[in-house]
């Protein structure tokens, strides 16, 4: 896998790597993709993809209001917060 491809992927995944890590990843990913290319041996024409195993489709519930987790409980784990919300660095 090309170094540039790894860098683009990292951007998509919102990760950053040191140059040494990038080299290592390029090697690992090359090995792993070599391994997964094995699937190409199988003829899967016309086989429906399995999204999951149970066969259930669109499990829905009635749209009725119900109590949620209290706001204070949700904010408890925030890295930075005020009384009513999360604080993050500037966006614009």
């Amino acid at each position: 896998m090309e170094r540039k491809q790894i860098e683009d992927l990292a951007k998509l995944a919102k990760l950053e790597f040191t140059p040494e890590e990038l080299d290592r990843f390029a090697g690992d990913m090359g090995d792993i993709l070599g391994f997964v290319d094995k699937l190409g041996e199988l003829d899967t024409k016309g086989v429906p993809p399995a999204a999951h195993v149970s066969g259930a489709v669109n499990v829905l519930r009635e749209d009725v209001p119900r109590p949620s987790v209290p706001r204070e409980d949700v904010l408890m784990g925030a890295p930075e917060r005020d009384e009513s919300g999360f604080i993050i660095p500037r966006v614009i």
Partner: peptide, 28 residues
Amino acid sequence: KRRIMLGAYVLSAGYYDAYYKKAQQVRT
């Protein structure tokens, strides 16, 4: 991180059919 990167790769445009969809077919 390695798994996130692999996952992002197989879901990305141009590779989805060859990897992710193919894997789901093999699953069937």
